[in-house]
């Protein structure tokens, strides 16, 4: 079970208090009524679902109730940082990045076990 740092509660809390809320930094277009079908599809339907470093929204729904942003490594499940909603996309500190990459090599993934076997 993950331990997640809430930037509003300023504390690490159990995953049980949180809810994942999709990819971060996708702003609703100001002129949404006027955008093209393609632009709407890009905004609403299409997500990158990246392996590795991703920016996500989480909500401390059973805590302070706030939505916030997180940079997470989806391979190691490690949270690299969390920051308040409304803040621009934060760069990942170099130290943490190194850890994340080292971990990516060590942890079990489908590719590393079953995948190679193919």
């Amino acid at each position: 079970m993950l331990l997640i740092h809430c930037p509003y509660c300023e504390e690490d809390r159990s995953e049980l208090e949180f809810r994942w809320a999709g990819e971060a930094h996708i702003a609703r277009p100001e002129n949404i009524a006027a955008i093209s079908d393609e632009e709407f599809a890009e905004f609403f339907f299409l997500r990158n679902n990246e392996k590795g470093l991703t920016y996500e929204r989480w909500r401390h729904i059973h805590g302070c109730g706030r939505f916030f942003n997180a940079a997470r490594d989806t391979v190691s499940d490690r949270f690299l940082m969390t920051y308040k909603a409304g803040m621009p996309k934060q760069p990942i500190p170099v130290m943490e990045k190194a850890v994340a990459i080292a971990e990516e090599k060590t942890v079990e993934t489908w590719e590393a076990t079953e995948g190679d076997a193919r």
């Binding site: 909500r59 729904i61 109730g65």
Partner: peptide, 13 residues
């Protein structure tokens, strides 16, 4: 309520 909070906090803060 979650849906409303989402828009209020992140789109119309």
């Amino acid at each position: 309520l979650h849906h409303m909070e989402d828009y209020l906090q992140t789109e119309f803060p």
